[in-house]
Design a protein around this nucleic acid. Structure first.
Lengths: 149, 149
DNA sequence: GTTTATGCAAATTCTTTGCAATACT
DNA sequence: AGTATTGCAAAGAATTTGCATAAAC
């Protein structure tokens, strides 16, 4: 089994970001490229506040509007890990335009960081008749390797 | 498979609530009994705001403090369904004092209600070496039977 | 020149706390 | 009396919006 932990994206180059934005129907403005790159370069999903701290040149509202737009265009999805703030993460886009990514997240109850476990895929569960499932999220909580020594 | 949808608790009677509180080391005050009963009588997990609306006689802060206490004593757990507000639900207490309940929640993207799917249990997923999992939550999103017609 | 995007400030929403008053033992 | 609980008011934290300016097409 592939136990890769870090979500790495090869979107270091600006032109790749531009392309990704355009291909999702988002006009690639300077702020949007900056926000997208920050997400792409991060190993972990980020909160709005964390992005704000990283991107001093872009206003909070601008970051927020970029993220909202990205979400609408299925470029980014959100995770709620219990920290109180929403976390944003690039969709790994398994081809389709599904809302949520199909991997599991791990929230460390000690250091309060959220990891994405790329190697672990979200198990499918059956829902009762009448319910129609479009996406699912699975969050495991516990202690991360660093905090466990 | 048991496809029961509604989480029903037979805690209609005040004395049962008193007993449950006491057995969890929580002094059964009037407010706490009221809050506990409201949760017990609800088919779905409730937000603080929803409880506030139901329980006009108890102040928001009182409800909040009761819920926090319940949570500390593993009487109640919380769910984040993407609605923006935390939802509180009675632990079904499978004997142990585990933090999270072991069933799946369903969030309807149309009516924004959260159901608990008692019949569906949270699948176990393996985590990479070094991670220690203590609990897990699984939320399915989509359309509920009522909204799907 | 019209539409789109941005920054600033502020409104909203949800959660949490300080403190005085009340109830319990 | 002394501790625990509650209500009221307000502080914090995070998200979201209005509006005037600036940029893009």
């Amino acid at each position: 089994m592939n136990y890769e932990i870090i979500c790495t994206f090869a979107l270091v180059k600006q032109e790749d970001c531009v392309e990704l934005l355009a291909s999702h129907g988002v006009r690639p403005t300077s702020n949007r490229i900056i926000v997208l790159r920050a997400l792409a370069l991060s190993a972990r999903p980020l909160t709005l506040a964390e992005l704000e701290e990283k991107l001093l040149s872009v206003d909070k509202s601008g970051i927020f509007r970029a993220l909202t737009l990205f979400r609408e265009h299925h470029l980014v999805h959100t995770i709620e890990d219990g920290s109180g703030a929403l976390r944003y993460e690039l969709c790994h886009g398994h081809g389709g335009d599904d809302d949520d990514d199909l991997h599991v997240h791990f929230f460390c109850e000690n250091c309060h960081r959220t990891f994405c476990l790329d190697g672990v895929s979200v198990p499918q569960v059956g829902v009762p008749p009448g319910f129609v499932a479009t996406s699912a999220s699975h969050i495991v909580k516990g202690i991360c390797p660093e905090c466990g020594q």
